[in-house]
Design a protein around this nucleic acid. Structure first.
Lengths: 107, 107
DNA sequence: TAACTGCTTGGCAATATAGCCAAATAGCGC
DNA sequence: GCGCTATTTGGCTATATTGCCAAGCAGTTA
């Protein structure tokens, strides 16, 4: 199974795409603290349970989380906490960009 | 100017969304090596120049790159090389996920 | 000014994503 | 089995993204 450069990029992009949503980021952030059931995450993001479930499916498909059904509830776990490190970088982008935008008078 | 938790998440998501495309990842990767003009990036990704230009506009809007017109050419620079660090994490997600998928017999 | 180059923008069609409701599914207690 | 709860899935519409072509625009050269 040969991995072309193109496939590599697509896989990277898919992981980023999976993270690229406010609700999903919120969930990942919460899951970084420990496993959570869908109901907890639903309360957190305040959307329909079906919506939350679909978001979780996206994260799972990307390989970012894992699910474990115990009784009636399904618990999700963050598989790659290193994802959180990225946010430090993201914050620096945001800061720099905000300054720049203000400097430029919101041009 | 108060930054609500929601706005923070949206800004993070926007940066991730800006990165979440194979062609844009390829360009960011290239720009990590140094500034490049649009024509060089076009050759790299092999798409229409207008497409490349639009991708660059997305990266610029997110605050990830900067552009500088010199003569007829426009040169782009990567503003936040820390973005590259993330890819180490992304690779680990991919590896773990691939193993998992193979283990599960591509279920 | 005119023609040329490098790039950006507008417009459009194809495709993907988001979020709601309703229906289906799975596990539990009776 | 029946009803109940937690979650997932299907279906739908609204909205966003992508990538091409054509047109526009700025800088250069003649």
């Amino acid at each position: 199974m040969k991995t072309t450069e193109q496939e590599k990029l697509e896989r990277r992009a898919n992981i980023l795409k999976a993270l690229a949503h406010p609700s999903r980021l919120m969930m990942v952030d919460e899951l970084a603290k420990g496993e959570r059931c869908v109901c907890e995450l639903q309360e957190l993001v305040g959307a329909d349970m079906s919506t939350v479930s679909k978001h979780l499916a996206v994260l799972k498909k990307a390989g970012l989380v894992e699910s474990d059904k115990r009784g009636l509830q399904v618990f999700y776990t963050l598989l790659s906490p290193c994802v959180m490190n990225f946010f430090t970088c993201v914050e620096s982008v945001i800061e720099a960009h905000t300054e720049q935008t203000i400097e430029a008078g919101n041009r």
